[in-house]
Amino acid sequence: MLELRLVQGSLLKKVLEAIKDLVNDANFDCSATGFSLQAMDSSHVALVALLLRSEGFEHYRCDRNLSMGMNLGNMAKMLKCAGNDDIITLKADDGSDTVTFMFESPTQDKISDFEMKLMDIDSEHLGIPEAEYHAIVRMPSSEFGRICKDLSSIGDTVVISVTKEGVKFSTRGDIGTANIVCRQNNTVDKPEEATIIEMTEPVSLTFALRYMNSFTKATPLSSIVTLSLSSDLPVVVEYKIAEMGYIRFYLAPKIEE
């Protein structure tokens, strides 16, 4: 028996909007720790890891570890039917091939049930090793989203270079080149507007903008994004989900031939 009640149902709506275009089908894993997902995109270039900790739910009942295969497009369709202020409850019985999403309006005057078919998904679970990153950039998520969008109108790839002075995003295409430098800036009034760079050594890596743009669909989940970079390692683009967990995107850097 599984029953998860999330008062801030909009979080789950935003999570699905963030990942549904990157991943088609995925297993949601439910355990005492929380509600989680790890999945690769169809070309196995990017990986998404989601964790919503059990403590973040108003009610969290998971009698035994359960893996539920879902089509994320279909799940997003169902969650779109929940209001932004609705409380969302996920329910599944042991051995059942369906999951039920219950939406309650804040005033309890409208209660909806949506039952969705589960699917069997053969998914590979990857071990993500702990890594010491050469550079960690923390910046406003809206700024990062804007940069990825702007650069993708000029080129297909972005070179992210971090030095003590700042982080540089560069691209080149048929019409020309673009460089955007964000300097370290931790003296702003609001912490969510700061750009903070922790660096042990300079790093410069090239990534496909198509994937970066897809990751920025998680922007509504957090005002801050963290980019963790190391030579020859996938970048980690992390959006923290307030008091609940995170959504992390991993993208393999392009390699010069």
């Binding site: 690769m40 679970h125 990857l126 071990g127 790839t157 996938p234 393999a252 392009k254």
Partner: peptide, 14 residues
Amino acid sequence: GSKQPTITRFFSKV
């Protein structure tokens, strides 16, 4: 030119 490696090149199956 540049090549796009897969994520499985960096992270192994468990």
